[in-house]
Simulated assay, not measured.
Amino acid sequence: MYKTTGDVMQGFSKEHTVPYLLQTGDLAMACAMSESVQPLLMSFGRVTTDPDQLAVMMSLQAGGCAEDRGREAELQSIAALRARNPEEAEDAIIRQKRYYALAAERYFKGWRHFKAYYGDPETEECPDFDEDLDEFIYLAGLLSGLQALNAEIQSTAPIGVPKNVGSVAARATSCLDNEKWWGAPMGLRATVWAMIPGAQPEGEDAFERLDASDALGEAAGVRISHVFHVIAAWNKGDMERVRAVIRRHAEAIEKRPPADGWVLVDQLATHNILAISDKLWMENTGHRTPMGGLGTFWDDEAPTGEVIDLDSLL
């Protein structure tokens, strides 16, 4: 009975739960689900085959939940430093590192499930995909590996993530159609080129590739490439480019709604872009990005034009 139940749960999750989740835009709900349901789903591996493919998605999302809490702690540390409260700032930094360590463990768990299901991309050829969802989860697995490394670095704790995981993930993106997947495979690859010294092939330009990937994502209504672009620019210390990508993202989401069936992915991109914007705003003003202010900055010139007498409207 348990085996049958486990097989049914795995099949239902892949055929209905994951697609349903991808077409919703409630990131908080997706976060809560991934953290609460994953232990139940994974426990069926004790009585039937391990749900490795589904675990890739759930570990990636759960890692993002922990990373979000790390970002919140980082904002609190910045605010405390501005308020000249070093003890509060130090406590927030410690919490930030703990959350990033948890995020790294979750992302790395997703990477291990990815390799268990698809094979090790470092030693094996591209897998045969049965359907689009299989390809998407493959992309999610590559992102899990890259995120595991990034989160481990942020935590300053030794989690055990292989240092070559970024390069391995970058090479494995060639298994996916870049145009079909909104420029994300090339965006991930170019980000690794920009972040790892010596990784960029001769004759390539990481940021030209990122610009091209951004255009594909904007046309498709899935702007995840913007996240890769802003991470690469931040790593290079190019704050002007960071701000330009944030502005570009804000303009893009105003011009075109998210693609049907991939709303959650696009919302996740906006969520991550907003997190970068919030950090910039907090560092420079002491508060986050104002409501409705994504794509604007504290030092923007005030718009000029006709002054409206508000009293006349009352």
Rank of each mutant, 00 (worst) to 15 (best):
A28K: 14
A212F: 04
S34A: 15
G166T: 04
D130K: 14
P303T: 12
G261A: 06
P303D: 02
L21G: 10
D26W: 02
T304R: 14
W281T: 05
R95H: 10
E152L: 06
L314A: 10
V8D: 04
P303W: 10
P39M: 05
L274E: 12
K180L: 07
W111P: 05
D309C: 07
E124H: 14
G45N: 07
A101Y: 00
E67A: 15
V222N: 04
L22G: 02
L268M: 11
P158C: 00
L143K: 13
K255D: 04
P197Y: 13
W111V: 05
Q61N: 08
L310M: 15
E88F: 05
A215H: 02
N235A: 12
A302H: 07
Y117M: 06
L102S: 07
T17Y: 12
P257T: 11
W281V: 03
G119Q: 11
S155C: 08
Y117N: 12
R248N: 04
L264D: 01
L310F: 13
A244T: 09
A259G: 01
R209A: 15
P127C: 07
I78L: 14
H113G: 02
D50A: 14
L274V: 09
M58E: 02
W262R: 15
R71I: 11
M186Q: 12
A104F: 13
E306G: 00
L210F: 09
L294R: 15
D134A: 07
E283K: 13
R71N: 07
G63T: 08
N235S: 09
W262L: 07
D130V: 13
I246M: 04
S34E: 06
G261E: 04
A190D: 11
T24S: 15
A184W: 13
F297S: 01
A32K: 13
H287D: 10
D309F: 08
D278F: 08
A170E: 03
G237V: 01
E204Q: 15
D238L: 12
G293E: 07
A116T: 06
N284G: 06
G221N: 03
E67W: 13
D238H: 13
E301S: 13
E251R: 15
A219I: 00
S43P: 05
L274H: 06
P290I: 08
W234M: 03
A219Q: 10
M186P: 00
E179K: 09
W193G: 00
M239E: 14
F12K: 03
G64W: 09
G198D: 03
Q61G: 01
P158F: 04
Q38V: 04
V161L: 10
L210K: 08
S167R: 14
E131Q: 12
E67I: 02
A233F: 03
Q53R: 15
P290F: 05
E254Q: 14
T270F: 10
W193A: 00
N150C: 00
T156N: 08
L60D: 00
A244D: 10
S77K: 08
I253D: 02
D134F: 09
F136C: 01
R223E: 00
R256E: 00
M291F: 12
L102H: 03
L40I: 10
R46T: 00
R46H: 09
I273L: 06
A28I: 05
E240T: 15
G183W: 06
A250N: 07
L176C: 04
G63S: 01
